[in-house]
Amino acid sequence: MPSASLKALAGNLVLLAAGTAFVSAALAGLDLGTARRLGPGAFPLLAGLGLVFFAVCSILADLVRPVAPEAADAPAVAAVSFGIAGFALLTPLAGVLPAAFVGAFVTTLAARGLGWRRRLIFSAATVPFVWLLFIQLLNLPVVALRGV
């Protein structure tokens, strides 16, 4: 097996292990809630299942036709990571709607060639969807806008 195939397999195994850890932790110690009122374990469970699914699909695809992995795009990985972290840190301080705006904006820094105006428009357009999905449809017990 060439070294590129080993690197791809190692990366997929890391994703598989991370997904399995998320699923295990969610099932072992977190309340999943119901379909209409999700608990704190629902997102880690779904994210973990998604990671497991895509890691297994990638491993199977590499067994059929190996593909050399591409180099990681460090600025894009950082932008997405900081966007998620910003959302998580800002939600308790300002509410889920401002946090969604900031998280979406920071995450758009991963997209090259996207101007500031489009980044702002995308981020602003994200807020009503977050409000509609999480507050209105799923009725999650989150603060939309702290202080209001």
Rank of each mutant, 00 (worst) to 15 (best):
A47Y: 13
P40S: 14
P40G: 11
G33K: 05
N12E: 13
R36D: 11
V14D: 01
L49P: 00
D62E: 14
G33W: 07
L27D: 07
P40V: 11
A42N: 06
F22H: 04
G19Y: 04
G11T: 02
G29D: 07
L49G: 13
A28Q: 08
A55Q: 03
N12Q: 12
G29W: 06
C57G: 04
P69F: 01
V14Q: 00
P40A: 12
R65D: 10
L60K: 08
P44R: 13
P44K: 14
L45G: 05
A18F: 11
R65V: 03
A47N: 07
L30R: 15
P66Q: 03
S24P: 01
G19C: 06
L32F: 07
A17D: 00
V14C: 01
V52Y: 06
A35Y: 11
R37K: 07
L46G: 13
G11D: 02
A26K: 10
G48M: 00
A21K: 08
G48Y: 00
A55M: 03
S24Y: 12
V56F: 14
S58I: 02
A68D: 08
A17H: 02
V23C: 07
A72L: 15
L15I: 05
F53R: 02
F53D: 04
A26Y: 14
G33F: 05
T34E: 04
P66C: 07
G39C: 03
A72H: 05
L32D: 10
F22A: 09
V14G: 01
G50L: 13
I59W: 02
L38G: 05
A61Y: 06
F54K: 10
A18D: 00
G41C: 10
T20G: 11
L13I: 11
S24F: 12
L51E: 13
V14M: 01
P69E: 05
G11W: 02
N12F: 07
V64F: 00
A17S: 04
P66M: 04
L49Y: 00
L27I: 03
P66A: 07
A47V: 15
P44F: 10
D62M: 05
V23D: 05
T20F: 03
A55R: 04
